[in-house]
Write a protein that binds this DNA or RNA. Structure first.
Lengths: 360, 360
DNA sequence: ACGGATGCTGTTACCGCTAACATACCGCAG
DNA sequence: CTGCGGTATGTTAGCGGTAACAGCATCCGT
């Protein structure tokens, strides 16, 4: 299966005597040379035709294209990239795919990159800093044209690699910290604060938090910090808190909610670190006949599409995922107005959607 | 920012006079040469150390490693791959990421590839055959070690590329058709049939189908075909059908269910093409106080984790996603018992989970 | 008619790394 | 002391493309 190193000259001279059957020899993988011999021009001209660069006469162009198509030639980007010092890949490094939130960021990125000739390549870290470091190393070794990476927290080595890479780096999702190069995202601290303020303004006083255990989900952590900060400012503090890790988020939301409401019956508001567990909690409350938002209010975070399908709309904050992807890609592609310089921090502002689960 | 083509010799000779400050010059991207000069051995020896290949004395090895680390050297896999004719990438081509189902396949693939030195690279087609073709072309041009691609239906050109690529190809998810090389998946036709049989056996007679409009979701189509086939065998046919495209699947499920139940009040069973719309329908029925599964039964497809969090469990069939990913990766990595020959079709058998939405 | 612009094609020298082979050095049996 | 096998390192020749430049017609204005 591997390309065998049989001597080229002999093989070729007897293999393609300018005959025209469709697919002459499906053995060795084809090179520019094969197309060049099949069409009677130099490799360079073939290269020009296939990349649509430089002047080539129409007749030659057609002859080359026909030959390439007939042979089923697929260019070798490895060689091309090495020679031209140009790689049309953008490394995208994210913590998870099963999260609903990152696929949407990806959509924003893909859409924007679509007509730039750039191609996103995804790496997944599972929220592990070490894994992030090795994924980054691996991707940088392919010399991408840019890096889009989630979060501002990385290992020291990863920071160093990013700083040294000599390509545009965009850290996304979060702006509470100092980026290596550019950053696009929202302030999770502010988002937590805002939600707390809205909750307090609505008159809730006995507030519980339900969220992920993950020590490396810095954004969830920052939201909670902002949230508690605002509570403190109002002279309040969390009445209860519950954490989980792994499993079906919807189910966990249900279970955690039951646990909290049983343990702390005085609780009148449930703040969830994401919409999925929030939805689980909401379904639980509705199922139990709890008056939402009268007796208990709820809020999540992210603004996932899923919420539209629930019986009543969960309060949430849109995390601007699509736009984050778009702007990050624009910066990499050099299409962003302010991204031409690099080193920008672009803050987006999530909108609070009170839905039907906060009274007032 | 781009590596500038300044002449190497001069630059180097004055840039690194064997001094030892941490990060001498963050300008040009580093090459083996830089590490070689910094550690006083040949490039070849550095290459050997960094790849852990061949015999190198401990003292040399350490010196080289230290230099590489100090400089922040990241190898250039483009050059490496070109020279060695070896690429540690596996192309994975799937229709969508927002589907819940493919991320899980990805997990199976990643897990299995983890300790093989192989790296998955994802391409997304959005269920478009043309896009699939171009994504495939793009990926093949990086000369991956294998291809994992969803489905058995591809454009003619894509089929040809796959056949010519000279690397292991695994078509996943589906086995109702003829694969180019290997295939791992379930029979969706059989799955549809099985579900229909279970529904009929439970005594339902007025059955409606609710699903996606997408003309290129061949697996959903095959499930419906199998389903109708089994209905026909029992002298039945679909009482109603409803299609959607785009939007929040949960919401669409809700809306479609309302539409069907209003239009065809005699319907006593709702068969959904996926769990997400099924869940939407279930929530709708529960909300309306419809007796499930007495008055109306429901079933979906996929066995997504989300279902665990619903008030009652939706009937579904597990699509063996994790295992599909695993086996596909094993075949590519040459670790699968029967995959050593290639050209195998491996059928997996989904289990029908009746949940709480089919009576009996 | 001639210098120069223009269009098309070919030649040469790499890109950064590794396979394969060559070399140097060591110790030790003969 | 020679020769041999092994270990540690260096040298050479590409991998398959592309940048840069070098031809060589053809065509233009003056």
């Amino acid at each position: 299966m591997r390309p065998n190193g049989d001597n080229k000259e002999e093989t070729l001279s007897q293999a393609s005597p300018l005959s025209k059957p469709p697919i002459p020899e499906p053995r060795r993988t084809l090179t520019l040379r094969d197309v060049s011999e099949a069409s009677g021009v130099s490799e360079m001209t073939v290269s020009r035709v296939l990349r649509n660069r430089g002047d080539v006469s129409d007749s030659t162009r057609e002859r080359v294209q026909e030959a390439a198509r007939r042979l089923g030639y697929v260019p070798n980007k490895i060689a091309g990239a090495l020679a031209s010092q140009r790689v049309n890949l953008v490394a995208v490094i994210i913590p998870s795919l099963s999260n609903m939130v990152f696929p949407e960021v990806m959509t924003g990125i893909s859409d924007t990159l679509e007509d730039t000739g750039l191609q996103p390549v995804v790496g997944v870290t599972n929220y592990s800093p070490d894994r992030e470091e090795s994924v980054l190393y691996e991707m940088l070794s392919w010399r991408p044209s840019g890096v889009i990476i989630a979060g501002l927290e990385h290992t020291e080595a990863a920071q160093a690699m990013l700083a040294q890479a000599g390509i545009p780096i965009v850290e996304i999702m979060d702006i509470d910290g100092s980026p290596v190069d550019s950053a696009v995202g929202i302030s999770h601290r502010r988002a937590g604060r805002q939600m707390a303020e809205a909750i307090i303004a609505a008159g809730y006083r006995n507030i519980a938090f339900l969220g992920t255990m993950m020590p490396h989900d810095h954004r969830a952590r920052k939201r909670l910090e902002g949230f508690e900060e605002a509570l403190a400012k109002a002279g309040l503090s969390l009445v209860d808190r519950e954490f989980y890790s792994g499993g079906s988020a919807l189910l966990k939301g249900r279970e955690m909610t039951e646990a909290v409401l049983t343990r702390s019956p005085q609780v009148d508001f449930l703040y969830y670190s994401n919409d999925m567990i929030g939805a689980g909690g909401l379904l639980y409350c509705l199922h139990k006949g709890i008056d939402v938002p009268g007796q208990v209010g709820l809020a999540g975070f992210n603004g996932v599409e899923l919420l539209d399908g629930l019986p009543i709309r969960l309060a949430t904050m849109d995390a601007c995922r699509l736009q984050i992807g778009r702007v990050a890609a624009e910066i990499i592609a050099g299409k962003h107005p302010s991204g031409l310089i690099g080193g920008e921090v672009i803050e987006l502002f999530p909108t609070l959607q009170k839905g039907d689960t906060i009274r007032g």
